[in-house]
Design a protein around this nucleic acid. Structure first.
Length: 365
DNA sequence: TTAGTATT
DNA sequence: CATAATACTAAA
């Protein structure tokens, strides 16, 4: 998610739109601005190696703001203020308040003074995460893509831990692809429908494939998709994945293992294919449909019921007995839930709403 | 075997 | 205090 539109994000804080005319008119900070700021903070903290729970807190706050229907400025003015938002504690509420009031955020400016914000762009390269970015910065003084490109091609990265010959090759390839086409972006659903259905049908034609379905944001019916996800029930996963990687639409194989294969097709669109034994198909389809937040919520609920959920099924924590897995509805049922339509699987209260037995508060409204 | 990145 | 679980790759 979040492919950061990033037309070369400015070095300065996004919020510092400081009313250049000097009219004194209040600067409007949109919810999107706040989301970007919170995510920026999270990314920089992560590169700095800060407490993962703190990083998570900023990400969680960003997600909550994303889900809001009301402008933050309105909420700030109401009873309880920003603290009323789930995931907003004292620290984050105060920072967002400052951003809304002044259009700037001192904390972020300080952070950007400490950790070069251009490292966030480096983190967008596939295969490069916060740890690698931090190593590049500390061990080789690299903070920009240009510096990285130069160093990668001139032996300037020798000696950086966990960055061997093979990783370097991959890095250079990623830099080349980055030049070739600007950044991965989400595409309108209609643009990928043909490709999605074609790939699905080609897999359905394989004798080894018992069942083939699309999953991910495509199945959730989202207006745009960042990639495609396909689940295949089969007794012969390697054979299926080998065929998948050899389909005529495949432009590049990103990775290929025994249960999972990712390729690019349709002009750089990533397509993930997961091969799963038939008795696990329901759990796998559920897992691959997401959303990620929905899955995490579901798995947390499973734990509270003494169960554990993964893409292979629902299991008892003690004893490990299998409770469900072949059908999606049976997975939800094992967790005491009615089947939830994919479109609603966004972690926006749908799980409580689907809860049977112990009635969920119906939030009269 | 482990670290890092990736996936929902 | 503190959200789940797993796969793949390269390095060690």
């Amino acid at each position: 998610m979040a492919p950061a539109p990033s037309p070369a994000s400015p070095p300065a804080n996004r919020g510092s739109v400081r009313d250049p005319g000097g009219s004194g008119a209040p600067v409007t900070i949109s919810n999107r601005d706040v989301v970007r700021t919170l995510e920026r903070i999270a990314g920089l903290l992560e590169i700095r190696g800060d407490n993962p729970f703190k990083v998570r807190a900023y990400r969680q706050a960003a997600v909550q703001v994303e889900n809001l229907e009301t402008p933050l400025s309105e909420i700030a003015a109401q009873e309880g203020g920003l603290r009323a938002i789930e995931g907003f504690g004292a620290a984050i509420a105060e920072k967002v308040q400052e951003l809304l009031r002044t259009g700037r955020l001192g904390f972020l400016e300080d952070l950007e003074g400490e950790v070069p914000p251009t490292l966030l762009t480096i983190c967008e390269l596939p295969g490069v995460g916060p740890r690698t970015a931090a190593a590049l910065w500390h061990e080789a003084g690299i903070s920009t893509i240009d510096q990285l490109d130069h160093a990668a091609r001139s032996g300037g990265l020798a000696g950086i831990p966990r960055l061997g010959a093979r990783s370097l090759e991959n890095l250079v390839a990623a830099l080349d692809r980055r030049v070739a086409r600007g950044g991965r972006r989400r595409r309108p659903r209609e643009e990928v429908t043909g490709l999605a259905e074609t790939l699905r049908d080609e897999l359905r034609a394989l004798p080894a494939a018992q069942r083939v379905e699309l999953a991910g944001s495509y199945r959730r019916g989202e207006a745009t998709v960042g990639d495609l996800d396909i689940v295949v029930a089969t007794r012969h996963p390697v054979e299926v994945l080998t065929c998948f990687a050899a389909l005529p639409q495949v432009e590049r194989v990103i990775l290929r293992g025994d249960t999972k294969c990712s390729i690019e097709a349709g002009g750089g669109l990533q397509v993930d294919c997961r091969a799963i034994p038939p008795e696990s198909f329901g759990a796998a389809w559920q897992y691959f449909t997401g959303s990620a937040a929905h899955n995490v919520r579901l798995r947390g609920r499973a734990l509270r019921l003494g169960l554990t959920l993964n893409e292979y099924g629902v299991y008892r924590v003690e004893g490990g007995g299998r409770v469900a897995g072949a059908e999606e509805a049976e997975v939800y049922a094992a967790l005491g839930l009615d089947w939830i339509p994919p479109e609603r699987r966004l972690d926006r209260g749908e799980i409580d709403a689907a809860s049977r037995g112990v009635s969920a508060p119906m939030a009269g409204e």
